[in-house]
């Protein structure tokens, strides 16, 4: 399998006034296409920071990050935006849907910026909603949807541009355990059936067990990186 993600000696230092906060202190790992990886660790260990870097929302202070054969080091703002548009789908803890905007239109959003025709936009967003099982909720606004449904809309949005990678930072953090399991089943299905690479951050071992590999962070360093014995969860 190809190396989809290759991270080498990445550090990230935030500067707050005169104080330097090292959030990532030199980590290296690779992720192949089609993997399903959980990132775990205590609060403040740098999980979100590495996710932002993987998602091309932020740049590392030192080190290199290759995504799908492209070195992101010297890319300009708009080139990073282009990578986000084509290669990455984000799912956030707080869903981050546009308020007062229908589910369909929320799912359409990434296609506004990737030059997809209106008809194609409609078709693809409807299809993405059907994948996450929300065919009948296309015209509902986020405020008319449950948390789990909102997160499904967000996942549909992450899928719609056919991005090879989905990055999910605590996607089940705001959901109860039943809904969390449903969301994780959805991720598992997407990973298995569509071969989408999924990297998610979680605090819960139960959630992490859905993935096939767990990378553990501690104070900005990787302390363990191992396969999960039994992938998925029996239904």
């Amino acid at each position: 399998m190809d190396m989809l993600i290759k991270v080498e000696n990445i550090t990230k230092i935030y500067r707050v006034g005169d104080v330097e906060v090292p959030a990532i202190r030199g980590v290296s790992f690779t992720i192949k296409s089609g993997e399903f990886v959980s990132i775990m660790g205590h609060s403040g260990s740098g999980k979100s920071t590495i996710m932002n870097i993987l998602g091309c929302l932020d740049k590392p202070t030192e080190g290199s990050y290759m995504l799908d054969g492209v070195d992101t080091k010297n890319l300009a703002r708009d080139q990073l935006a282009d990578i986000r548009s084509r290669k990455i789908g984000f799912v956030f803890q707080g869903f981050n849907l546009l308020a007062r905007t229908s589910a369909l239109e929320n799912v359409e959003l990434p296609m506004f910026y990737s030059g997809v025709s209106v008809a194609e936009r409609k078709r693809k967003s409807r299809y993405a909603l059907s994948i996450v099982g929300l065919d009948d909720r296309g015209h509902h606004h986020p405020s008319q949807l449950s948390g789990g449904q909102q997160q499904r809309v967000a996942i549909a949005r992450a899928l719609v541009n056919n991005a090879p990678v989905i990055l999910a930072d605590e996607p089940t953090g705001n959901l109860d355990s039943k809904t969390s399991n449903e969301i994780m089943d959805l991720f598992t299905r997407l990973n298995r059936e569509s071969n989408i690479t999924i990297i998610l951050v979680t605090h819960e071992e139960d959630i992490a067990k859905y993935s096939r590999r767990i990378i553990r962070f501690l104070d900005g360093l990787i302390v363990s990186d191992e396969k999960v014995k039994k992938a998925g969860r029996k239904k």
Partner: peptide, 16 residues
């Protein structure tokens, strides 16, 4: 601001 962040995260460029 948050809406702008969401748009950026899904690929909106400077001129978008």
């Amino acid at each position: 601001t948050r809406e702008i962040g969401i748009r950026m995260s899904v690929g909106a460029k400077t001129w978008d």
